[in-house]
Nucleic acid binder design. Structure first.
Length: 274
DNA sequence: AATCGTTCCTGATAGC
DNA sequence: TGCTATCAGGAACGAT
């Protein structure tokens, strides 16, 4: 399930594949556009024709493809979305939702088994509410200790829910929320306002650290995630608690527990995490 | 204003 | 072994 490190991996690979930028768009096909697009599909197609992508960036878990006229095509992979740019166009995947055709014959494919992924088109200067609602980027210089402290103090949530809330810190999902709390030795049901100065320092250090480490390993693949080169990530080998309920804690051998918070699984060590 | 519960979707799998 | 009910979860949305 793509979270910040997985999305960052896709963005980097698309940037470096050499086919995405300054390559004129000669066609766009969008399948089953009813639910997952914020804009009429035929208008997007007409709007993109003849233009080129100038840059690819990431905001939280959103992939932003910037056009030469400053319009943007924005993609959220949600659970099973995959974005890849192929030089050889043969592909019979039945879950292709969108194809962008380039002049040199390569294709940008968006595949999504469960159709939870989303595509947005934004004209220059337009607002996109889903982006405006996002909180601080945990890998940016704006993610300061003071910012984190203020966020924690100004809400009243269980720590797991806090880390998952995209309007607070943007980009952390279910896997990294559990992992961060384990490494910080904080119980997932602790209230945000109960975090001590020492724990605050640890959170501020660990959050960027684990996200960067996962990026280094090209993200985590539990079942579905494939990067832009259609490969699995490697970071699942280094997960400490996620998905490991019933197994023993890597630190103290206590059995790892699974609980449900906001209808989402949380994994933690009841001995290490206080 | 902040937080909570429901909903979307379909392949994988737990459990009988 | 084979079937079916449940689970997986990001985030918009409406409710509280």
């Amino acid at each position: 399930m793509p979270e910040l490190p997985e999305v960052e991996t896709v963005v980097r690979q698309l940037l470096h594949c050499g086919r995405m930028l300054n390559n004129p768009i000669t066609g766009v096909k969008i399948f089953r556009p009813q639910r997952w697009i914020n804009y009429p599909a035929d208008k997007i197609a007409i709007r993109l024709m003849g233009h080129v992508f100038k840059n690819i960036t990431r905001r939280a878990k959103f992939i932003i493809l910037s056009l030469d006229d400053e319009a943007e095509l924005i993609i959220h992979l949600r659970m099973t979305g995959k974005l890849m740019c192929q030089a050889t166009p043969i592909d019979d995947d039945p879950y292709i939702r969108e194809i962008i055709y380039f002049q040199d014959g390569s294709q940008l494919l968006f595949k999504d088994t469960r159709t939870l992924g989303r595509l947005y088109f934004k004209e220059p200067g337009e607002k996109l509410p889903v982006l405006d609602r996002l909180g601080v980027e945990p890998l940016s210089f704006q993610f300061t200790r003071e910012k984190l402290q203020a966020l924690l103090y100004h809400c009243n949530l269980e720590m797991k829910s806090f880390l998952m809330d995209q309007s607070k810190i943007a980009g952390i999902g279910n896997i990294y929320a559990s992992e961060i709390l384990f490494l910080c030795q904080i119980h997932p049901q602790r209230n945000t306002r109960s975090i001590t100065a020492e724990e605050l320092n640890r959170l501020h250090e660990i959050i960027p650290e684990i996200l960067n480490r996962s990026i280094k390993f090209k993200g985590t693949t539990i079942a579905d995630f494939r990067n832009a080169e259609n490969q699995s990530g490697e970071f699942q080998k280094y997960l400490q608690v996620y998905g490991n309920h019933g197994e023993s804690c890597p630190i103290c051998q206590t059995e790892i527990q699974r609980i449900v918070q906001k209808q989402r699984s949380t994994f933690f060590c009841p001995n290490c995490q206080k």
